[in-house]
Amino acid sequence: MSGPGQQPIRFLLCDMDGTLLQPDHSLSPRTLEAVRALRDAGVLFSLATGRPPKAMLQQIEALGVDVPTAAFNGGTIVKPDGSLLVAHYLPATAALTALALFADQPGVEVWVFSGGDWLLKDPNGEMVPREQHGLGYPPVVVESFEPYLERIDKIVATSNNAQLLIELEAQLSPKVEGQAQVSRSQPIYLDVTAMQANKGDALATLAEYLGVPLEQTAALGDGGNDPAMFHRAGLSIAMGQAEDAVKRQADVVTAANTEDGAAQAIEKYVLLR
């Protein structure tokens, strides 16, 4: 993170859920226009999200994104032609530790993402309809996660009990220190990914690939997985509805996603520079 000086912004990396997208997962006309204005101004634009790659395709097309995008919090970076630029998998030992901690927690559903599939044991979980709506495709029901341990992109513990997820994050982080990243991408989602799967490294990788100095990059987000890119970007912008701990790590704060905060940030902090 650095102060908002006068360096021109040549590349903006943007979170999706809670940032670019409205609560119903749609893109507002103002947001579409703001991203179009970025492209017209010659500013590169891409997405960094906890979502799987195929859950980004509709937004990539709508926004006209023509550079690599970062899925699974940066664990997978995909080129526009669908080929992989980067792929980092969660170590099996860390996966087993997380799954053991999450097992039988009251009110917590556990999902595993592997090989492009969303895996779960209980298809009737309370959180499933929301996720299916957001991803745009259904889960695969499995009896066990063990056959997938060697190629897990992300484990998610999800619950409407946000305080419980805070407590689980605090419990799990020291258990997998040096092996995995643990962060709440949203108050109701606790993500576990490979150490290299973080948006800060994703920003650095994409900037190098695109030939843009980090000083001329901007990062925009709202979740606990976004400060990793805030600390690497030349300009960092937090959404208005973000938790205070996230806002404190950004250079500036824009409006909430319900108020087209992403579009406002693009107009005020990127295009005007």
Results as ranks from 00 to 15, higher is better:
168 L>T: 05
153 D>Y: 11
91 P>E: 03
152 I>M: 07
80 P>A: 10
267 E>N: 12
267 E>C: 06
77 I>E: 07
123 P>G: 01
41 A>C: 04
272 L>C: 09
24 D>V: 11
270 V>W: 01
140 V>G: 03
86 V>Y: 13
120 L>S: 04
24 D>T: 10
105 Q>D: 02
263 A>N: 09
96 L>P: 01
242 A>S: 15
68 P>E: 08
171 Q>H: 11
196 Q>I: 00
194 A>C: 08
101 L>H: 09
157 A>F: 02
147 P>L: 02
222 D>I: 00
8 P>H: 03
6 Q>C: 07
268 K>M: 10
165 L>I: 12
218 A>D: 09
5 G>T: 13
148 Y>F: 15
75 G>V: 07
78 V>T: 15
162 A>W: 07
184 R>D: 11
202 A>M: 05
205 T>F: 11
119 L>E: 07
165 L>Y: 12
183 S>F: 13
12 L>K: 07
166 I>E: 15
220 L>P: 02
51 R>V: 04
138 P>L: 11
212 V>H: 10
97 T>Y: 00
265 A>Y: 06
34 A>M: 11
98 A>M: 06
113 F>E: 14
185 S>W: 10
216 Q>D: 13
165 L>Q: 08
6 Q>S: 14
96 L>D: 12
44 L>D: 03
162 A>V: 15
213 P>F: 10
159 S>P: 03
70 A>R: 05
127 M>G: 10
112 V>T: 05
178 G>T: 11
249 Q>A: 12
177 E>L: 12
4 P>I: 11
184 R>I: 09
210 L>I: 10
144 S>H: 12
168 L>S: 07
196 Q>M: 07
230 F>W: 05
162 A>T: 15
219 A>C: 08
37 A>C: 04
37 A>Y: 00
78 V>M: 14
113 F>G: 01
257 N>W: 00
244 D>W: 06
241 Q>P: 01
39 R>H: 15
4 P>C: 03
30 R>C: 07
